[in-house]
């Protein structure tokens, strides 16, 4: 009967949607620019372990050029110059890219996982559970993250970079969980969920087999925005002097510039980390915007056919 149909390739909807989404994505200039920038930063992070291999003096943290005792401008040995104690700025910048990715992505993944789980749970269970979880989310949402982290670090002394990541994740889930909860609420009403119920599916099965695959694309979109905010928070913390002293991040670099009084005297030192922070957040943001367009057909320009 269905002659024309079964010659059709049997791609999964995930793959097909990805391919369709990809073709929309690459048509979008925002997406293209964002992705290009991101690839550059990725390369930077990947290259970050090369300089220390060449010469120990290129180690971003401990390597000191024995011939230099103060900050100097770009030279053939130090393409971007050195900092106040003769460390290479380029290798610090490369290491910073790695740290930025690490902090951004891991904090984002953690907050998304948390937000997703809580959002789905609250939306699906409803009633008291929903109210409790969402009020908690509201409370955390109105707390100024930066301030709380500052207080915590002044209480417990210097914070390890992973503690910072964890704190960021703990404070950034409520926004995600609200969105996921709304999505879950609308999914919950869909007949395919009721069909699963009539088939006898348990709550856990419904949440993980039926609701989760349908909220994941949205969660992924939110992840890109969360990466942006995690990187900014970490940079701000580091700049204010509450970063992990054992890690070279761009925020740390800015703090060294500031603390050693080179703010307006060494542009070769100030500008690269500043620009990098702006550009990496911009690139994740643009990526998110472009993905938004892929996921939400209403944002697309063309109208659908009959």
């Amino acid at each position: 009967m269905e002659r024309d149909g079964h010659k059709n390739k049997t791609r999964s909807p995930q793959l097909e949607r990805f391919l369709e989404g990809w073709s929309i994505f690459v048509q979008n200039p925002l997406g293209k620019i964002g992705l290009t920038l991101l690839v550059c930063f990725g390369l930077m992070a990947a290259c970050s372990f090369i300089p220390p291999l060449l010469d120990p003096m290129y180690d971003p943290m401990t390597g000191v050029d024995p011939l230099i005792t103060r900050s100097v401008g770009p030279s053939s040995a130090h393409w971007l110059g050195t900092d106040f104690m003769g460390r290479d700025i380029l290798s610090q910048l490369l290491a910073g890219a790695r740290v930025a990715f690490m902090v951004g992505v891991s904090a984002a993944v953690m907050s998304i996982l948390l937000g997703c789980a809580i959002g789905m749970f609250a939306g699906y269970m409803g009633r008291v559970v929903d109210t409790l979880l969402m009020r908690t989310a509201d409370m955390i949402m109105v707390m100024p993250t930066l301030l709380v982290v500052l207080i915590l670090s002044s209480l417990f002394g210097q914070l390890n970079i992973w503690t910072i990541v964890l704190i960021i994740a703990l404070f950034r889930w409520p926004g995600v969980s609200r969105v996921i909860r709304a999505q879950t609420l609308s999914l919950k009403q869909r007949p395919f969920i009721e069909a699963a119920k009539v088939a006898g599916a348990s709550h856990m099965r419904i949440i993980f087999m039926h609701i989760m695959p349908n909220v994941l694309p949205l969660a992924f979109l939110y992840m890109t925005f969360r990466v942006t905010s995690a990187i900014i928070i970490e940079a701000a913390l580091a700049f204010l002097g509450f970063g992990d002293p054992g890690t070279v991040s761009w925020g740390m670099m800015l703090q060294w510039v500031w603390k050693t009084g080179h703010m307006f005297r060494a542009p070769y030192w100030l500008l690269p980390p500043g620009l990098c922070i702006s550009l990496i957040t911009l690139s994740f943001y643009m990526l998110g915007r472009a993905m938004d367009e892929v996921l939400d057909p209403r944002l697309r320009k063309e109208a659908e056919a009959e």
């Binding site: 909807p13 869909r190 007949p191 395919f192 069909a195 699963a196 039926h210």
Partner: peptide, 11 residues
């Protein structure tokens, strides 16, 4: 169910 466009999980 009534609506076959809604009663199957698209994923």
């Amino acid at each position: 169910f009534q609506d076959p466009y809604q009663s199957l999980n698209p994923q």
